[in-house]
């Protein structure tokens, strides 16, 4: 498994405040742009990976050996369906609430901005960073010579709210994952994030 994925929450909380300070100066758009931009930069810094077969990749990602699982424990629920049980941001969010109080509303405003301008898949501002990171890191992984593809299906916020794609997308994504909508909801009871990882045929 990915070793030592914990951090000092003092640092996590200060990064949230850093983004809030950016929003004070550059608005919600600046907040969103910085969060997405830095996730892209981070992903571009990680080493590239190549796997011979899909099974090799699945073993690496579920054992925490892939860059995709550097910051989270990833589980496989179907051939192309994957879940993250515990959101890697949940500890930081809990610590923010414990130490400071209610989350600054700018986080939800930025989330809405992302959902309307980039893609409707974020349940919290941290999802913007996380999903961008996954998307960009996937481009650095090749399986049998083909690039890994990533698509978000569902994300659950600390409030329990689940972000889902529009009906037309959802149907296609669930079909690709090989799970029904009911199974998808069952997975979201146990996990914080449900997504597709696959290679084009």
């Amino acid at each position: 498994m990915a070793e030592n994925i914990g951090s000092n929450p003092f640092v996590d909380v200060s990064v949230y405040l850093f983004f809030e300070d950016i929003s004070d100066k550059q608005g919600v758009e600046g907040f969103t742009n910085y969060m997405v931009g830095q996730a892209e930069s981070l992903a571009k810094s990680v080493p590239e990976e190549e796997y011979k077969t899909w099974d090799d990749f699945v073993n690496a990602v579920t054992n925490g050996e892939s860059v995709l699982s550097s910051f989270e424990h990833i589980g496989q629920i179907s051939e192309y369906g994957f879940v993250t049980k515990v959101c890697p941001f949940s500890k930081a969010i809990r610590e923010y609430i414990k130490r400071i109080g209610n989350f600054n509303p700018v986080h939800m405003e930025a989330t809405d901005h992302y959902n309307h301008t980039i893609q409707p898949s974020a349940a919290h501002s941290a999802c913007m960073m996380h999903q961008t990171y996954r998307k960009e890191v996937a481009k650095r992984i090749r399986i049998g010579g083909k690039p890994l593809q990533y698509a978000q299906i569902a994300a659950k916020a600390y409030t329990g709210k689940i972000a889902l794609p529009p009906e037309s997308w959802k149907k296609v994504l669930l079909e690709k994952a090989g799970i029904s909508e009911t199974q998808g909801f069952m997975e979201m009871r146990e996990n914080s994030c449900l997504y597709l990882l696959y290679v084009e045929d």
Partner: peptide, 14 residues
């Protein structure tokens, strides 16, 4: 993961 963002965020901000 939030903490890891510091380095790329600071890089971008600089």
């Amino acid at each position: 993961m939030m903490d890891i963002a510091i380095y790329s965020l600071v890089d971008d901000m600089v």
